[in-house]
Amino acid sequence: MPQTIAFTKGHGTGNDFVLLPDPDGELELTDDQVAVLCDRRFGIGADGILRVVRSAAIDEGRDAVTAGAEWFMDYRNADGSKAEMCGNGIRVFARYLADGGWATIDETPLLIGTRAGVKSVTRSELGFEADLGTWRVDPAEVLVRARGLGVPRPGLGIDVGNPHIVVAISNADELEALDLTVRPQLQPDPPRGANIEFVVPSDPLVREGVGSIRMRVFERGVGETLSCGTGVAAAALAVRHWAGQAAPDRWTVEVPGGTLGVRMQRVRGDLHVLLSGPASLVYSGEVALA
């Protein structure tokens, strides 16, 4: 008999996930099972799986236990591959824990273990805000080829716990003309792959001290998605990097699925990037594993 498991469908600005409660770490999913669950014709349909597991019940959660994070976000891309982090997913994960009474988030930040380290989530005006930690700019130039782009463009590497390549686009028409049904080609191709963001600045770029950009993204292991939380943060950081020292520390980023907020602030002496936005739980049910 096929195993039947409970699930909840959720999303953050259209970046959607299947959440699987597995507090004691008893569920072992193959890549194929993840892919079927995420399939939009033969499964539930999602950009990825969020397994809700206690940090103590998963080998990758040992450091999270030490840091005081009871829960670990075991994130898998739609093709079954493991990913380090997901900015939209962690907000949905926090919403699931809070709404289900698994954890509290109102009095103190909620600590969540990920493969990119322990992240803290709080409530915010936009819904929830996740501290993604520090970031790293890769000075090595990557050449990006994409269908509909015309000529190859240079991309900037930004690592916010997972790898990104950000490409500047000159105008909105060029952004809309991109065909992201085909994976853009990177030269050189990063060994772990990368999410690829295409951004266009608003006009004006900065209004009342807040920067504004638009973005589309191709996520590794998934394809084009309506939103990518860590990609939104990487895009804002890249434009801030290009703009120079006068660039603001607060940004709004428009993606096909909505609008997200990004800000930079000092945390114990280090400059962190924080991502804020909505998190929605759509429905719950049961599904038989293939």
Rank of each mutant, 00 (worst) to 15 (best):
D138M: 11
L289I: 15
R136K: 13
V160F: 02
R95C: 01
N15E: 00
G89R: 06
A290L: 15
A290T: 15
A35N: 08
V217N: 09
G87I: 04
T181L: 09
D31I: 05
A233Y: 00
Q33L: 11
V121F: 00
A146I: 11
S170D: 14
Y75S: 01
W71Q: 05
R207T: 14
L20P: 02
S81W: 02
G211M: 11
G48F: 10
R220G: 11
P204F: 04
R220C: 12
G150D: 05
A98F: 07
V199I: 14
H241L: 04
I58F: 06
S81C: 03
A238L: 08
G150Q: 05
F93W: 02
E70N: 01
A67N: 07
G113T: 06
R95G: 01
P190G: 03
S276V: 00
E254P: 05
H241K: 01
W242C: 09
D22R: 05
S170H: 11
A116S: 10
V253S: 08
A130T: 11
R216C: 02
V287Q: 12
I44L: 15
D47P: 09
T104K: 05
M264E: 13
E286S: 15
L19W: 02
L126H: 10
D99V: 11
T66C: 08
L289T: 08
V166Y: 06
E141P: 06
E174G: 15
A172G: 05
L143T: 15
I112E: 04
A98M: 03
G12T: 06
Q245D: 15
I90K: 05
E208A: 12
D99H: 11
G101A: 07
G127H: 03
D99A: 13
V18P: 06
P201M: 02
P256H: 12
P204M: 02
V160T: 14
A172M: 13
E208V: 03
I90L: 06
V239Y: 12
A279N: 01
R136W: 05
P204A: 01
R115A: 10
G87T: 06
G127D: 01
D47C: 07
H164G: 03
I112F: 01
C38Q: 08
V65H: 07
L111S: 13
V142N: 04
D24C: 07
H164D: 02
T122W: 00
R115K: 14
V137A: 01
V92L: 01
P139E: 13
R240H: 07
